[in-house]
Simulated scan of single mutants.
Amino acid sequence: MPAAFARMRLFQAVRRFSQATRDWEQAVRYMTLPDERFDLTKVSARVYGTRDEALVIQAAAGLDSPELELTERRLVLPMPEQLAAMKRDAGYDLPDERPAYG
């Protein structure tokens, strides 16, 4: 599956999750901070322990572009296990999709 298509499917899955998850359902609820306004990777690092999940933060926030301002708000994000399942279903971040280095 082409990487762009997988990214789009993951983005849509996270967006749907963030909009449909009810208050009592399992999810990460995170209140964004002022220093994260223009750096989605900070939210990613604080929630998931890695800066690699900025696309997930962008989708949950409903931002069309990572360059848009992330105003202070509560985000509903998938738990790490839920995110791993979403990635698998979307065909995202599979070993054959990663760029080869060296």
Rank of each mutant, 00 (worst) to 15 (best):
G102A: 03
A20Y: 05
G62V: 07
A13I: 08
F17H: 10
R98L: 15
Y92G: 11
A61E: 04
L63D: 11
K42I: 14
P78E: 01
I57F: 04
A100L: 10
Q12W: 03
R22D: 10
K87Y: 00
A3P: 10
M1I: 11
S65L: 06
A3R: 05
R22Y: 01
E53M: 12
Y92H: 15
P66C: 04
A4Y: 01
G102D: 11
D52N: 14
P95C: 00
K87I: 02
R16C: 03
L63Q: 10
A85P: 05
R51I: 12
R15F: 00
P2K: 07
R29Q: 07
L94N: 05
T41A: 09
A90G: 08
L68Y: 03
R51H: 09
R22T: 11
A84V: 11
Q19C: 06
D89C: 09
F38C: 13
E72N: 06
L94W: 01
V47E: 11
W24H: 14
K42H: 09
R98M: 14
Q12E: 11
A84K: 14
E53L: 13
R51V: 13
P34E: 14
M79A: 12
T71A: 14
R16K: 03
R37Q: 15
L55V: 07
A20W: 08
A61C: 02
T41R: 15
E67H: 14
E53V: 05
Y48H: 11
D23F: 01
P80Y: 00
L77Y: 00
E97F: 07
G62N: 07
Q82F: 01
R51L: 12
D52Y: 05
R16L: 08
F38S: 14
T41W: 11
A54T: 07
T32N: 06
Y48P: 14
R22V: 11
E97C: 09
Q12Y: 02
R74T: 12
P78C: 08
D23H: 07
A6P: 09
A54H: 02
R9L: 05
Q12V: 03
L40Y: 00
L83C: 01
G91P: 03
R74A: 11
M86P: 10
P78M: 00
R7F: 01
L70Y: 02
A54C: 05
V76Y: 05
A59C: 04
Q82S: 02
P99Q: 13
L40C: 08
A100R: 15
E53G: 00
R16H: 01
S44Q: 03
E81N: 09
R7N: 09
A3T: 13
V43T: 15
A60C: 09
A6C: 04
L40S: 08
G91H: 10
Y30N: 06
P78R: 01
D93S: 10
D23V: 09
L33P: 06
I57T: 07
R7E: 06
A100T: 13
L63V: 11
